[in-house]
Nucleic acid binder design. Structure first.
Length: 424
DNA sequence: GCTAAATTCAGAC
DNA sequence: CTAACGGTCTGAATTTAGC
């Protein structure tokens, strides 16, 4: 019997904040998305107050005041660093690991000594000891079932955070499947759940018993695979190698509405810089760059404008200078001064491996070499001396358009300067 | 009427 | 005092373009 574990950190962002600020323990805490926009992580106490995932912060303000809810701006350097620690520890429990998201991974446990719940408990204990973070483990024969097992472990405290569906007999399993709504299944979202309900499929058990061929014809292959996996038939492999991204996007909402071109130029320059850093980190080159602007869809009475322009690059590149130049050229094409922009962004696409470049017949190789050493120097200085030590003047100095981040915790694990301030 | 490319949809977290 | 609502990425399905 195949045995897959799905390990995930409970309320990940909130738990990271709590590790470094134990006073948050037992209190209703939320972490907000970029620009302090929406609640994207909630402690159990906050969930108990009825705060839904993705609720805009301004709608929560009153409730937060009433109940003393603590709201933090998101601190991605902290969460990314904690995630790396967790994933490294987990990698020692199995040779096959799929890192599925910032706080989740699958581990192949097939063939390891039983009971596998004991492995789950060992994992839980070590992650808690070595990082301070709480995790749950779900174990089952396929990935969606492991997700469900994890869901069960989280919801029912008597499992102590570890649930092995493989260790249950079929009647017990069925008991659980009958109690869980189909919408909880991995891959069944807000559109598909109502469509399934319309044909009488309400629970996991209903879906398990449905005819895969019929579901395929009505909903497509994805649904068919989900059903087969729920029956225990493996269709999805563990994806243990991470392929390089096929496109890289960097976009941000502004802290205020922006209408002037110079501010947009600064923002676009910054986003291109970030995107190009990611591009070089995965050793790719971009074949095209897109620029886009957006007015706020939440102000329906204001005139809306959401232009974008994709510019093909004659020779694929990872040179920030060249990418900024091209993006700013594109920005000028799409910019109209009469709108109040809420957001801007860039996308690098048609990415290819740097190891297999198609050189231009007409461009001299020296140009490429110059780019190479200039970018290496830029990345090297910023790696050694800290992010932003060396940056492009076109990013601007005051950056009045920058996103709001009113209550960010210090970067406890990635910045010497901020630890000194924290004194915890 | 076919294939390929582009766009949209749905999902995850 | 008022207005304030995330970001990245994937793969399938559907539509459109080009022949």
């Amino acid at each position: 019997m195949r045995s897959i574990a799905l390990i995930d950190v409970n309320n990940f962002y909130v738990s990271c904040e709590r590790v470094f600020n134990p006073a948050l323990e037992g209190k209703p805490v939320i972490v907000l998305s970029n620009n302090d926009g929406c609640a994207v992580a909630r402690s159990n106490e906050a969930k108990a107050l009825g705060i839904q995932m993705g609720t805009p912060w301004f709608q929560l303000r009153d409730l937060a005041r009433q109940h003393g809810i603590l709201a933090y701006s998101s601190n991605y350097p902290l969460y990314a660093d904690m995630s790396n620690r967790v994933m490294t520890i987990l990698s020692r429990f199995s040779p096959l690991q799929e890192i599925y998201s910032i706080d989740e991974c699958f581990l192949e446990l097939t063939g390891m000594p039983l009971p596998h719940s004991a492995i789950g408990q060992a994992i839980q204990k070590r992650i808690r000891q070595w990082t301070g973070l709480p995790v749950c483990a779900g174990i089952a024969a396929t990935k969606p079932l492991a997700k469900l097992a994890n869901h069960i472990a989280k919801k029912h405290s008597w499992f102590n955070g570890v649930c092995d569906l493989n260790a249950m007999n079929p009647a017990e399993q069925e008991e659980w499947f009958t109690r869980i709504p189909a919408g909880e299944i991995w891959g069944i979202g807000r559109k598909l759940a109502p469509r399934l309900a319309a044909i009488g499929i309400h629970t996991v058990q209903d879906l398990r018993q449905a005819n895969p061929a019929m579901l395929r014809s009505r909903f497509g292959v994805v649904m068919e695979k989900i059903v087969l996996e729920l029956k225990g038939v493996a269709c999805l492999d563990l994806e243990t190698l991470t392929e390089p991204r096929q496109q890289i996007v960097c976009s941000r909402s502004f802290g205020m509405r922006v209408s002037d071109l110079p501010s947009l130029q600064e923002a676009i320059s910054l986003y291109v810089t970030r995107a190009a850093e990611k591009l070089r980190r995965q050793r790719s080159l971009a074949g095209s760059i897109s620029v886009f602007l957006q007015t706020s869809p939440y102000e329906p009475k204001a005139p809306q404008y959401a232009p974008s322009l994709t510019i093909p690059l004659p020779v694929s590149t990872d040179d920030t200078n060249q990418l900024i130049h091209t993006a700013l050229w594109g920005l000028k094409r799409i910019y109209r001064p009469e709108y109040r922009y809420q957001k801007a962004g860039v996308m690098l696409a048609e990415l290819t491996s740097k190891a297999a470049v198609q050189q231009s017949l007409f461009s001299a190789t020296t140009r490429m070499d110059q780019t190479e050493s200039r970018m290496a120097a830029l990345d090297g200085i910023n790696r050694k001396m800290g992010k932003n030590t060396l940056r492009y003047a076109s990013e601007g100095i005051t950056q009045n358009w920058k996103m709001r981040s009113g209550n960010k915790s210090p970067c406890y694990t990635t910045s010497w300067k901020e630890i000194a301030v924290a004194r915890c």
